[in-house]
Design a protein around this nucleic acid. Structure first.
Lengths: 187, 187
DNA sequence: GCATCGGGAGAACGATCGTTCTCCCGACCG
DNA sequence: CGGTCGGGAGAACGATCGTTCTCCCGATGC
């Protein structure tokens, strides 16, 4: 097994285990056992657990941003629909088995107070999603605050869906987003 | 020092340290050192760390529910104002120094996957806040979904305010809540 | 075929954690 | 005043964690 595929296996395994149990509850040896990558190789690719956590979050950041953009491009009838597509994507994500909330919200809660790099990555990720929404609302000529409000709905949906285990918050957030979008358009 | 005041000191200290650093990063010995309560007494009052965590969360649940109700009763010109008062209260909370997000969202992210009691307490707390909002929207004759949407705004504001460190999300959520309330009233 | 090198398996190490135990002192009771 | 009891301080214990080290095997180059 070469270093590159080992790195991918480790990232996949760590992401899944961190999501399921939280970061601190997953030892490096559990990642080794579940990924089949030896400890030696693991530490070659990720010299410390903190670096592994950062790598997992950074990859997830790119994946989420890519998925939101891809979903928006699919339903590309305009910025209005691209905003709503975000909540559709959330709904599909929430319905996945084992969904336990947003990795960045969870990682920030667990490590944000003691690990500044984790806090920074979470902040950057949330800002990136907000910026994507701002692109759409700018295209609509809507006021600046609308994007922030849409982001609050998305983040609230993630938090509540994770805690309750229900995918419903996505549809509720989508409906609320429609009201906010329409109200902004009417002004 | 009697057992009752020791329990209060431990709860106060544990709540503060858990908020600052997360639950798992705070050892029982750190709570002993910061509270001045000996380990022996600590384990007399809370026979395990898990029970202490549950006690902290349960007390915080009651405090938050009480604070929201009290804030709503102060501005008791009606259900509409009681809803908006929730976001005013959030704004004051977010502006407190050291604010690092909702204890239930954070605890769920860290422990919800491995400690069912923590997940249950978080679920009950979020449901209680939703129920309070539902009381107000019912009094307004608004549709059921409105309370869920208002709760998403509140939870999104907590998550984003915690991660970004800014109190702004409270005002943004309040403005969005007004739009949703007014749209429901117009129907 | 033999020496060398890289990687896998897992033991080892030092630190930390939750929890319990030991020791000692000060207060209360006869 | 002597004995007992409860609590404080902190050592001790067993488990676990992140990280490193040891040992061994198989492949590769000459």
């Amino acid at each position: 097994m070469d270093a590159e595929t080992a790195g991918l296996k480790v990232l996949d395994t760590a992401e899944r285990l961190f999501d399921e149990r939280g970061v601190q509850a997953v030892g490096m040896d559990a990642i080794r056992a579940a990924s089949g990558v030896s400890l030696k190789r693991l530490y070659q690719v990720f010299p410390s657990k903190e670096l592994l956590v950062e790598a997992v979050l950074r990859r997830r950041d790119e994946a989420v941003r890519g998925a939101i953009a891809a979903h928006g491009a699919e339903a590309a009838r305009g910025p209005y629909e691209r905003v709503l597509a975000v909540y559709d994507w959330l709904g599909a994500w929430f319905a996945e088995p084992g969904f336990r909330g947003c990795a960045f919200i969870n990682a920030f809660g667990e490590l944000g107070g003691v690990t500044p790099s984790v806090a920074a990555i979470a902040r950057e990720h949330k800002e990136a999603v907000r910026a994507y929404l701002a692109e759409q609302t700018d295209a609509l000529g809507a006021p600046r605050e609308l994007a922030d409000q849409l982001a609050l709905l998305a983040n609230g949906a993630m938090a509540v869906a994770g805690i309750t285990g229900s995918p419903e918050p996505a549809a509720q957030a989508r409906a609320a987003a429609r009201v906010l979008l329409d109200a902004a358009a009417a002004r």
